[in-house]
Computed example of a mutant assay.
Amino acid sequence: MGDWRRYAIYHTPEGPLAAFGAEWLGWDIARGREGRDRPAGVEALTRAARRYGFHATLKAPFRLAADSSEAALLADLRALAAGQPPVSLPGGLRLAALHGFPALVPAQPCAPLQQLAARVVRALDAHRAPLTPEDRARRNPDRLSEAQRNLLDRWGYPFVLGQFRFHMTLGARLEGRQSDALLAALHPHLAPLLPDPHPIASLTLAGEDAMGRFHQIARLRLRDAQR
Rank of each mutant, 00 (worst) to 15 (best):
M1D: 07
G2H: 15
R5M: 14
R6Q: 05
E23I: 10
G26V: 11
W27C: 02
D28V: 05
G35D: 12
R36D: 13
D37Q: 14
P39Y: 15
A40Q: 10
T46K: 02
R47N: 02
A49Y: 01
T57S: 01
L58D: 04
A60G: 03
R63C: 05
S68V: 09
A72E: 03
A75Q: 07
L80C: 00
A81Y: 04
A81E: 02
A81F: 05
P90L: 13
G92Y: 11
P106G: 09
A107W: 13
A107E: 13
A107C: 11
Q108A: 15
Q108T: 15
L113Q: 03
Q115D: 12
A118T: 05
R122W: 13
R138H: 03
R138D: 04
D142S: 09
R143M: 09
S145F: 03
L152T: 02
R154D: 10
V160Y: 02
L161G: 03
L161H: 03
Q163T: 08
F164Y: 04
R165C: 11
F166Q: 01
F166D: 02
A172M: 10
A172I: 11
R173V: 13
R177A: 11
Q178P: 07
H187I: 00
L193P: 01
P197S: 11
H198V: 08
A201Q: 13
A201L: 13
L203N: 03
L205M: 08
F214H: 04
H215Q: 02
A218G: 06
R219L: 02
R223S: 14
